[in-house]
Write a protein that binds this DNA or RNA. Sequence first.
DNA 1: TCTTATAACTCTTATATAAGACTTGAGGAG
DNA 2: CTCCTCAAGTCTTATATAAGAGTTATAAGA
Lengths: 245, 245
Amino acid sequence: MNDPFHRPEKQPLYAAVRDAVLERIGSGLLAPGDMLPSEFALADEFQVSQGTVRKALDDLAARNLVVRRQGKGTFVAAHTPERALFHFFHIVADDGARELPTKSRVLSCRRRRPDREEAAALHLARADRVVEIRRIREMDGKAAITETVCVPAQWFPDLDKRAIEEVPNELYQMYEERYGITVHRASEKLRAVSASSENADQLGIKPGSPLLEISRVAETLDGRPVELRRSRCLTDGRHYQSVIV
Amino acid sequence: MNDPFHRPEKQPLYAAVRDAVLERIGSGLLAPGDMLPSEFALADEFQVSQGTVRKALDDLAARNLVVRRQGKGTFVAAHTPERALFHFFHIVADDGARELPTKSRVLSCRRRRPDREEAAALHLARADRVVEIRRIREMDGKAAITETVCVPAQWFPDLDKRAIEEVPNELYQMYEERYGITVHRASEKLRAVSASSENADQLGIKPGSPLLEISRVAETLDGRPVELRRSRCLTDGRHYQSVIV
DNA sequence: TCTTATAACTCTTATATAAGACTTGAGGAG
DNA sequence: CTCCTCAAGTCTTATATAAGAGTTATAAGA
C-alpha cells in the first residue's frame, strides 16, 4: 500500500493516523494552540475515510492532547494559565475554595551540576548542568510553600541569566512559549517531613513543624523528564487534593 | 418515537443508550462481573444500530465502568483485589516497589452517632448512625498506618456485629460482595500533621513526628458518599504516589 | 455613500448505520 | 487427546446525514 505514514504491522488504521498526528505535535510541527487540518483534509492526506480520522482524533482528545470544537476545528491543547494551574496545582483551601498562589518571591536562579537525585530524575549525567530556581510562594498573603525547581540547562539555554523579576509565577506556560517545551504529565511523590530551620525561617514557623513535601517530575509528551520540583507546603487550613476515578 | 428508554430532549441517541445501561448498573440489576447483553442484543432492544450501542459502551469503558474483551463480551467492572489495591492504595516504597499492607490489626468496630465532620462528609443527620472501624495496617512487617473508617450504618446493617477477625484487609471487595455497594471513585485530602501520643504509641514513633494524613471520601457510582476514611501514614522510606495526566 | 441586518454558502465536527474482519471458547471428528 | 470448525462476541472501517460556526454577498435604510 502507498502509505504516506508509518504503519508497522497489525496496527489498526486509526492508530497509525493517531500516531502520525501525535508525531507532528511531538516534533513541534504542530504547536500548542494550532488548528489541525480538518478531518476531511487529513482523510485525504492519509487516504482513509473521514470516520477513521475521526476515531484517531477522538483518541487524542480523550488524552487531552487536542481540543475539538464542533464547527470550529480541532486544536492542539495549550497551557492556558487556568489549565496549568487547575491541572498541576493541587493545593486547595479546606473549605474547597481554590486559592491560588498569586505571588512568588524568587530567592535565587543559578546554573550548576545536578546532585544524584536530580541526575537520576532528569536522566542526566553528573557532568551535565541544571538551572535551579528557588522561590517562596505565597497563598492568602502569607508564605506557604518553599520550592526548588530544577531543569536541564541544555534545554533552557539562557534561563539562569534572566532577571529574577522575569521569572513568572507560572512556569509551564513560559517553558512552552519561550523554550517550546510542553509539560504534559507529571508524577508527584508526597511525604510528611519536619521543617528544617531554613524552612522554618522562610515560612515563619517553628523548626520541626510538619510540612507536606511534594517531589514532582514533569514530563514532555514523549516521556522525557524536563523538571524536578521539590516543594514543602504548610498544610494549615489547606490540603492537597487528589481525585481517584 | 417508540422509545423503550428515557430520552429527555436533544440528547444524542448513544447517550440515551449509555444512560440506560448505566441505570441498570447503578440499580444493581447488572452486578459487577456480570456480562452485558451483546451489542446486537442491546441494539435490538433499544431499536438502534449496533454502532450506536458500541459508542455507548465505548463511553462506559472509557470511564472504567465496563470492561470489554473482543471475542468474549462486555462485563461490568468488578473490584478484583488487584484493582482495588492498585487503584485506591497509593502508598509506595521509595524505590518504586509496590509493597502492599498485608496485615491489619482491627482495634475496634462499633456503632455510634457521627461527629460533625462525618455527618457532613457522608450526608447524614446527626441522629443517624455510623459504623466505625479502627485499625492499624502493617507494611513491610511494621505498623505503618493508623486508620479510622466510617460508613453509614443503614447501608451496612450488621457490619458492627461481625467478629473483628472477619473484617478483611481490603474492605471494598467486601462492601461489594456482602452489601452490594460498589465504590467507584474517591477524593482524598492530604495534610502533614504531628503524631499525637496515641499515634505515637500505635506506630512506635515519637509524639510530634510528622505523619501524612489522608482523609478519603469514597463514593458509589451515582455519587453518594459511602465511606469516610482517615489515615495517618508513616512516610519513612515510603511516599504517596500521585500521577497527573 | 455608509452602515447594518440577514440570507446564503462553506467549512467544520457530530451522529448514525452498515458491513466485513478479527478473537475467543466450546464442541465434535479423528 | 488433539485438531478443526463454527458460533457469538467485539473491533475496524466506510459512508451518509445532521448540526454548529464563521464568511460573504446583498439589499434596505439612514
